[in-house]
Amino acid sequence: MSFLEMENVSVTLGDTAVLEKISMRVEEGEFVSILGPSGAGKSTLFRLLTGGLPLQGGRISFGGEPLAARKNGFAFMPQRDALMPWRRIIDNLTLGLEVQGTRRREARAKVMPLLADFGLEGFADHYPAQLSGGMRQRAALLRTVVLGRPMQLLDEPFGALDALTRIQMQRWFEARWQKARWTSLLVTHDIREAVALSDRIYVLSPRPARVIAEFAVPIPRPRLVEAPGAQAHAIESELLETLLQQTREHP
């Protein structure tokens, strides 16, 4: 049985069908991406997983149990960094631990040794506004990672960065991920990003979202140190074709 399994998951919000019989799985230590047009309901899927929405139809199992039985299985990284501007970086990083009831001093002791690895050494006492976009995003990722949850949910984590910072962040992320192998589910509409980071990719249709294709990406890592090879290009153009065909059918 897979680590995370969704079977025929459907969601209707008001009168709009947002998700239609979505089935997907994520294995332990696997990096899976969900690729789809904007507004397809990718974020709805995450809200479902983090308990922000009740399950309306279908079945989700996580770690072998129904999702409802598992509290706190996911660490969620939102689209924009969502750092609290009034908290210093260190206090932003310990937020999740504090919510779980860890004492502030213990939480800090747990986070401090990780700062260097995330390129944030010496910035613990800065406010988020004093950091660059890339650093803020790394801080947001570290805030997610320190929770030690079994699975990471990444909602277009690099979408708000400028092109150059984004590429740098993706490279850094790939190196970091190779070391830690977090089980991850990434939502994105950036084809290149999906191909560069994922083991497998699910392609969603426009709303109501269905899974229309599943791609495996058997390219050895690291993939971002050099320019993408022919194999990556082939997968990228195939993905692009699949997506464009969808929007042609539903203009």
């Binding site: 308990g51 922000g52 939102p78």
Partner: peptide, 29 residues
């Protein structure tokens, strides 16, 4: 209050009171 900050806190398992104290109250200052 920033919706994303609230969503984030809820995904961390924060109670309504924790969300108020750590997100809504400072946002209102």
């Amino acid at each position: 209050t920033d919706r994303e900050i609230e969503d984030l806190m809820r995904s961390m398992g924060a109670s309504r009171l924790q969300v108020f104290r750590s997100a809504r109250l400072p946002s209102a200052m």
